[in-house]
């Protein structure tokens, strides 16, 4: 039976690695990256995958080999009576330590790019998450938020392609999370604080905006859309929004006066 069990344990690295080889070729992988910074994250993911993959294969193969080789039923050589080895302990402390330290340092820039080096600009849009929708507010002509000419919209976030977008992220009630899978962006929205989020889309298209923090019974349906479009399309969108808004404002005023 020892051989049978050894093979069972061998299945783990074989199928485990197999699945990770199969997946990227069958659309079961990271969604297409359409951001300027995303390649760093994907690269790190792949790098760590390779590294841990090696550790995984080596350790699991060792496990398999020891089980196969030292099966008590077939192993006739005497047990290696030992309480351990100083040198080995040092080797397998230092090696992983060095590896881990390397990963730690290697990734710092990517993190700083996405979360620390805030671009010096006014917010492109203010996103206020609330149960269960994304309230959007664009600065009007004056380019400033919080003025009379602000434009309001819900759930459909339009941004210009190839330009840095700075989002001012707020929450009106509970925690939410602003997750753009294709943009490699994720940030919790916290009531009581606004958090800046920035990204630069490099491909036009229509993408998902996901709420990734449990925010109540409707969490699953708190769905938004991200429209990345050319500058001119973007401006047309804003203009249309303004037109609609003035129309409703006029209507409202008329109603109020009645």
């Amino acid at each position: 039976m020892g051989k049978f069990w050894s093979f069972l344990f061998l299945l783990v690295p074989v199928l485990g690695v197999g699945l990770f080889v199969w997946a990227p070729f069958n659309h079961h992988w990271l969604p297409r990256d359409v951001s300027a910074h995303g390649y760093q994250i994907d690269h790190l993911f792949n790098f760590i995958l390779g590294l841990t993959g090696v550790v995984f294969i080596v350790t699991e193969m060792l496990l398999f080999w020891f089980l196969w080789r030292y099966d008590g039923k077939t192993n006739k050589s005497p047990v290696k009576f030992t309480h351990g080895s100083h040198n080995l302990e040092i080797v397998w402390t230092i090696l992983p330590a060095a590896t881990l330290l390397f990963i730690a340092i290697y990734q710092m820039n990517a993190w700083a790019d996405v979360k620390m080096h805030k671009p010096d600009m006014l917010p492109t849009v203010e996103v206020t998450a609330r149960q269960f929708e994304w309230r959007l507010r664009y600065p009007g002509k004056d380019g400033k938020l919080g003025t009379e000419d602000d434009l309001f919209h819900v759930n459909e976030l339009h941004v210009p392609v190839d330009e840095m977008t700075l989002v001012k992220l707020d929450s009106a009630d509970v925690l939410h999370d602003f997750f753009l899978p294709h943009m490699r962006i994720k940030q919790d929205a916290v009531p009581g604080t606004s958090i800046p989020v920035w990204f630069k889309p490099v491909q036009s298209g229509e993408y998902d905006l996901v709420c990734a923090e449990l925010c109540g019974w409707g969490h699953y349906k708190m769905k938004g859309r991200l429209f990345v479009e050319s500058r001119s399309d973007y401006e047309r969108f804003l203009a249309e929004l303004e037109k609609k808004q003035t129309a409703t404002n006029v209507e409202k005023k008329a109603e109020a006066e009645e």
């Binding site: 993911f45 760590i48 841990t52 990734q107 996405v114 999370d177 997750f179 899978p181 990734a212 923090e213």
Partner: peptide, 15 residues
């Protein structure tokens, strides 16, 4: 280890 790597965690956190 993937999740400990902060930039990777941006993508995989809460997945």
């Amino acid at each position: 280890i993937f999740m400990a790597a902060t930039p990777v965690d941006i993508f995989i956190h809460d997945t």
